[in-house]
Amino acid sequence: MTYLLGILQTIGVHTLLGLSAYLLLLTGQLSLAQVGFFAIGAYVSGILTVIFSWNIFAALALGSLMAGFFAFLVGFPALRVKGLMLVVATISFSEIVRLFFFNLSWRVNVNGVEVGPDSTQGFREIRYFAANGWEQIHIVGLIWFVVMVVMLALWWLDQVRAGAVLRAVGTDELAAQSSGINLTMVKVAAMTGGGVIAGIGGGLFAHSTTYVDHHTFVILLATFAVSYPIIGGLRSVIGTLLAVIFIQGFIIEGLRFMGDYRNLIFGLLIILVMNMRPQGLLDGHLVADIRKLLSKLTKGGKADA
């Protein structure tokens, strides 16, 4: 059970990372900055619980807001460029964040023990959960509560005008601008929202693994972040979740015995999806089919009643 709960923790945290990229991908922007926001959330909330002994909820909230704030700041200059240049700009941002934490040494004596980020030695003992008697089921509950709230918020967003605006920008910027949509505002809003989601994911990640260092937030994690929604598909938030379950649950955990071949399969999978299902596993057609099926079942159920 401990093991399965651990896997659920990993899937939940990675889903948040994927959803942060999903929000931005709706506007057609491929950003590799999500890992930078994730790192900010991880370090800020870790510092707050370890050095300042904050409550976890307050620490996660501030870590998340801090990540959102940086996303907002980065959004303006970064979103002036698009396509490959945006990828380069966002990679640069993530590297700046990573190198900042690589150099950050903030050691404080708390109850006779020196704690806090220690540059290249990493930030150890972010043990709020275990030290405060949280059972693993509680941690999983918290993570999945956050995941559900974020997924519901994104689903709701897709049902209202704001979601249509995001998708309009993602589908055709020129057409959207011609319709009077403020592109900069929409993109910066999506970037900020993505930053907030990544920040809370980072905070949960740091407290689940109890340790973070600059190696944690490398470009590979940024690649995973954008891969989840791309593989899962952008028609529904469920796609990202399915992709995370498939990659983290099946490829990484289920195929552990295959060693290096797991990476090969991951690469192969992306190539296959891009060729065979360019809109992702859960594309528009599949979503429509599922909706039809659900609708039939509901009507059938009502008729039976």
Partner: peptide, 19 residues
Amino acid sequence: AAMFGVFQKQVDDTGDTGL
């Protein structure tokens, strides 16, 4: 460093839910 962190810090500490 990460893995050791999820273990119980001190044995018999009933308030610590680490492995």
